[in-house]
Design a protein around this nucleic acid. Structure first.
Lengths: 233, 233
DNA sequence: ACCTGAACACCGTTCAAGT
DNA sequence: ACCTGAACACCGTTCAAGT
């Protein structure tokens, strides 16, 4: 059935074809598998089968599974342009995290890859660079900027992860309302009214706008506090 | 070595002892394993060994692994008090997500359990109930409240997950700075100055405050927009 | 240098057999 | 009703053997 089996039956004659295995080829097939079934679904054996090779061949090109996953993450994140050249700090951040979100929507396994496998590539510092520059322009200090970067990053990844792999038990569907919410004292949640299909794009830009509003308010507050302190002296 | 082995050597005589297996007992042992090694580390076979029983005995009490993980999540989340009885909506939210965060810090496997395994218990709607009530008081509409709930939830879980299982590749350590940041054009990131040890508590309350500031600003904006619209008519 | 099969130590789960 | 061992179809990875 599989490409691997076909090659096996062809015998040792297929030497030249079997040897054209490269890191790039493996990464490309692996990415398509992750896009289809999520980061958890990928296995060295299944990937080898999809590539048309024995599982152990992969270990000639990658030292282990983590190394392979790192290469996938690097190829995805490395090709993105997080700096859109906008002038205002708000527009810069909206673009930067919009790009990150698009990446996650195109590659549903990415958030999981970045957060949990410890395979974040060096290029993950590209959105960090844009963010820290923009937030400095907004008036935050170093620590505040870094804290806000983690907030924006966490929000964007969580939101995209939820959109691509929704958690049925948390959906406010009729079924969940009657079976998991009704009669448990969740009166506000019970009564809440929602459109029949959730607008993820709108929810995302609402969240980003809210956070950027929060940045402005926080900067204004700390400026005020500093002025008061100066006046007291 | 293991309790299980001990019982085996005792033979069929230990019938009464081997039969006192309950869901509660299994959940309690499983929780201690998760707390120690994370949600990924738990396996039916390893858990059975820790409980002192054959792997298949567990299937007499849980229909499968997902069922077991659900029970763990339910026991952790179900015993928390997210409603602290505060009067102000800000204080309510600070308490609610503070409690959630404490839960995650005490049980490092929890964020993973809630987000990715699809085992969120019905009691996960308790913090949702508190949040929606508080945000309505703050002046947000239904959709805005729900969007902000997801923002607060995502931020809190991501922050706690990062604190309990930090990603070394993202730490701004000297090693990361020289090996992954220097010479790649990340000039702002390169120059940023940080205290030697990151204060997670301060970063968390900074984030919550920023979000709540954002809520106030967003409410004020939408009120203003409505007033303008009314004046035009 | 690269690819291979066999093997090791794992996994969740089914099934038929015990008491 | 509850517990058991054997078995099935998986995992990532090591190792010695091929070319």
């Amino acid at each position: 059935v599989s490409e691997r089996k076909r090659r096996k039956t062809r015998g040792a004659g297929g030497r030249g074809q079997a040897r054209d295995l490269t890191r790039a080829k493996v990464v490309s097939v692996a990415l398509s598998l992750i896009d289809a079934d999520g980061a958890d679904a990928i296995s060295m054996r299944g990937l080898a089968d999809a590539v048309g090779v024995t599982p152990m061949s992969l270990y000639n090109h990658f030292s282990n599974k983590r190394d392979l996953l790192s290469s996938i993450a690097a190829s995805v994140v490395g090709n993105a342009q997080f700096d859109g050249g906008q002038k205002g700090w708000r527009a810069q951040l909206e673009h930067c995290f919009g790009v990150l979100r698009d990446l996650c929507l195109r590659h549903p396994g990415l958030p999981r890859l970045l957060e949990f496998e410890g395979v974040a590539p060096a290029s993950i510092f590209a959105p960090m660079e844009v963010t820290l520059g923009a937030l400095r322009k907004a008036g935050l200090d170093d620590i505040g900027s870094l804290r806000t970067y983690f907030l924006l990053m966490g929000f964007t990844l969580a939101q995209a992860a939820y959109q691509t792999r929704p958690i049925p038990a948390l959906e406010l569907s009729e079924d969940v309302r009657t079976r998991r919410i009704a009669g448990r004292g969740y009166t506000t949640t019970e009564r809440i009214e929602l459109p029949s299909n959730w607008d993820f794009d709108a929810a995302f830009s609402f969240g980003i706008t809210l956070i950027l509003n929060g940045v402005e308010a926080t900067v204004a507050q700390s400026r005020k506090r500093k002025t008061v302190r100066r006046e007291k002296e």
